[in-house]
Amino acid sequence: MATTVGNEGDFNSLITDLVYLERDAIAAYDSTISHLSDASFKSQVAQFKDDHLQHLEVLKEIADESGAVAPIEGDMKQMLTTGKVALASLMGDGAILKAMKTNEDDTVTAYERASTHDDANPRSKAFFEKALADEQRHRDWMQRTAESV
């Protein structure tokens, strides 16, 4: 399912939706770590989860500064992101990583859009670009590793 995050008309809605997206991603990473069998994969995925935790902290700071709402839980999409991982776990690590790659497709798209949002100030744009680079790195690793399993 393609994300709509990044298409918001106002900056505060964008930040709120990015917080939701990060919370959903963190839940999917928790699920992935618990389902993977390869210890080296688990370790790498845990490092990627740390990036998402850092993104969430920055987004909460931006929300505080701008007056945006920073939700304390994920949204309904969390069931989709974690459910894909749970179903894929029936087919092994490669399938789990492919499911996570599709989740990363959404975060890449969201940060691509956010980095060009008209209302983003230079500080938030710089953060969005850094987060985008992180998400592209995550997605590329998921793709490469899933194909090699």
Results as ranks from 00 to 15, higher is better:
Met1Ser: 05
Thr4Glu: 14
Val5Leu: 04
Asn7Phe: 03
Asn12Val: 05
Ser13Glu: 08
Thr16Ile: 05
Leu18Asn: 02
Leu18Arg: 02
Tyr20Arg: 01
Tyr20Leu: 02
Arg23Ala: 02
Asp24Ala: 14
Asp24Trp: 05
Ala25Tyr: 07
Thr32Glu: 09
Thr32Arg: 01
Ser37Gln: 13
Ser37Asn: 10
Ser40Met: 07
Lys42Asp: 02
Val45Phe: 03
Val45Asn: 01
Asp50Trp: 02
Leu56Ser: 03
Glu57Pro: 00
Lys60Ser: 06
Gly67Val: 09
Ala70Asp: 14
Ala70His: 05
Ala70Gly: 08
Ile72Asn: 07
Gly74Arg: 04
Asp75Asn: 12
Leu80Ala: 13
Thr81Trp: 00
Ala86Ile: 10
Ala86Thr: 15
Ala86Met: 10
Leu87Ser: 15
Leu87Asn: 15
Leu90Glu: 14
Gly94Met: 06
Leu97Glu: 05
Leu97Gln: 04
Lys101His: 09
Thr102Gly: 13
Glu104Pro: 08
Asp105Gly: 03
Asp106Pro: 04
Tyr111Asn: 03
Glu112Phe: 10
Ser115Trp: 02
Thr116Lys: 11
Asp119Trp: 01
Asn121Val: 00
Asn121Ser: 00
Lys125Ile: 13
Phe128Glu: 01
Glu129Gln: 15
Glu135Gln: 13
Gln136Tyr: 03
His138Asn: 01
Ala146Asp: 11
Val149Asp: 08
